[in-house]
Write a protein that binds this DNA or RNA. Sequence first.
DNA 1: GCAATGAGCGTC
DNA 2: ACGCTCATTGCT
Length: 668
Amino acid sequence: MTGREVRKGESVAAATLPVARVCVDVPLAHLDRPFDYLVPAQFDEQAVPGCRVRMRFAGKQVDGFILERVAESDHDGKLAFLGKVVSPEPVLAPEIAALARAVADRYAGQLTDVLRLAIPPRHAKVEAEPAPEPAARPEKPDAAGWARYPRGPAFVDAIANGRPAHAVWQALPGEDWPARLAELATTAAAGDRGAVIVVPDYRDVARVHAACVALAGEDNVVALSADAGPAKRYRAWLTVRRGGARVVVGTRASVFAPVHRPGVFVVWDDGDDLHADPHAPYPHVRDVLIQRAHSSGASLVVAGFARTAEAQLLVESGWAPEIVASRDELRKASPRIISLGETDQQLARDPAARAARIPSVAFEAARAALGAGRPVLVQVPRGGYVPALACQQCRGPARCRRCAGPLGLPASGNDARPPTCRWCGVADTAFRCNTCGSRRLRAIVVGAKRTAEELGRAFADVPVLGSGASEVLSTVAARAALVVATPGAEPVADGGYGAALLLDGWALLGRADLRATEETLRRWMTAAALVRPGGDGGRVVVLAESAMQPVQALVRWDPVWHAGLELAGRTELGFPPAVRMASVDGTPKALAAFLNELALPASGEILGPVPIGEMDRDGNTEKERALVRATRADGRALAAALSTAQHSRTARKEPDPIRVRLDPLELI
DNA sequence: GCAATGAGCGTC
DNA sequence: ACGCTCATTGCT
């Protein structure tokens, strides 16, 4: 029930703890601190810490949350009264308030922005529903599946005994990872502790949710994902907040799920960029869970088939022991993986396969799997037709003569159309390579649509299923079919795929991005892990040069080795996670002023600024970006310095905003 | 010289 | 989306 609004001059403050410390929802950086209000006596009962309130602030009505009730205020001036208590539901748990503050500080952002990510919009009707009965504690599950990993059982024991433990887990290919994670969560729930499992997308939510329900029971498990409607979403979230369920499975926002007595947190596939929130202050699931596990004394698992440089740092720094299988278990579980570079490719004799540009080894692997009644996964790059072109001779990217943009083929079934610049749109009918003078072009990648068409012709009797941007399949049946999927959209095959063809190597490894190789290996492993073991005929063929490190890492199934190289490389370059880095964007003038007043810690260093984005008509750059870095030890000081500089900008009412992102995924 | 009006600003 | 200050305008 909500109280009546306070009228001017009528209010008397509550007898005990009359002061409410409130987080006000205003977007100004220099106001990111609590403000004190008097609690009117008639709201005394409802104005509990964590509840939503509304009050006058600088003349405007604003929303906020009560952080705490205190006896006296430090404020020298006169206190205003709270306007109203929106609802007495204590939606902001003390643990989450502290976590949100820490996350805001870590990312040089504001508490109110983090609370917007952490607390879903209110739905009054749902809130009026009675709280569900707390679910019964589940039985401690059988976690024998962890026995394939030497440190697995000990980790399960730690969760069972409520001891905080950290781990970086590399799942074996073919692993039923939703079941393994459900075992961890249910083990925690059996000890009356909470669990939060964060996965990249809704398909993963559905799989892990089903696995958790099977072990912990329907009433103990809640799925949180943004694509449910507001009522459903708020109901599920409130169930968790009210202690009705112990296990939460969700996408990135569920890092803040207010489970009671958290016992274990999990992030699955931490290299997936869906784990980076696109809203300010751009927190990353892995970082938030590290913070949360640390402050709540819960366990943490950073898991995936592949391993990120960030996870590698957790291992190398001693913060998290690794959970990996022995080479012997790996041999049993892994499909047979071979790589085919351009030089070793022998096109198939079969004319249809030749037309599809599929090397004979890959063609044979697919045919064998299809013959055994198994589906075959074909991983192709995103996008429709051939997205980019390169010089046939020197392999350099084909550039537009006018603006040096990348040449590509227009999206159409007609190969006769000339290459066209993807920036300025000018067609180039007489390409000549800038570097070597060759006149011949080759496609860097073959897009999903065309691959599907061509493969369909090569295996005329076999159905071709597509899974990508337009339509994503969750599962495919255990029968002969070609499944053409873009990275991240690979369906799970009942009984496993008989073979996988990974055709996107050129596109992925050709990117200039800092994380290109790590991302490539992650996508390959995610696809290859869906294939049956080599002993059961499972084959993976990757079209990429075998000398390249990510290719070697895939063939040997050695994500740890690759992550070690990746981290060493980043350490040498001075990039995250070896250092703490911020990207700072704004107009040249605003950026110069911002950098000038930035009080960096001793190890601080500014790179740039450099222009980003388009130029205006006069050739002036509209936006610039600087990178600011410091040692990890100075990370907090770096974030604090960035916050302070933002505070003085907003306090001065500077018109041009400066965007700060800490450890952004895309650097250069 | 003084009142009436309007724009700008703090923020509990 | 308030109520204060301060500047500008208009009138005697």
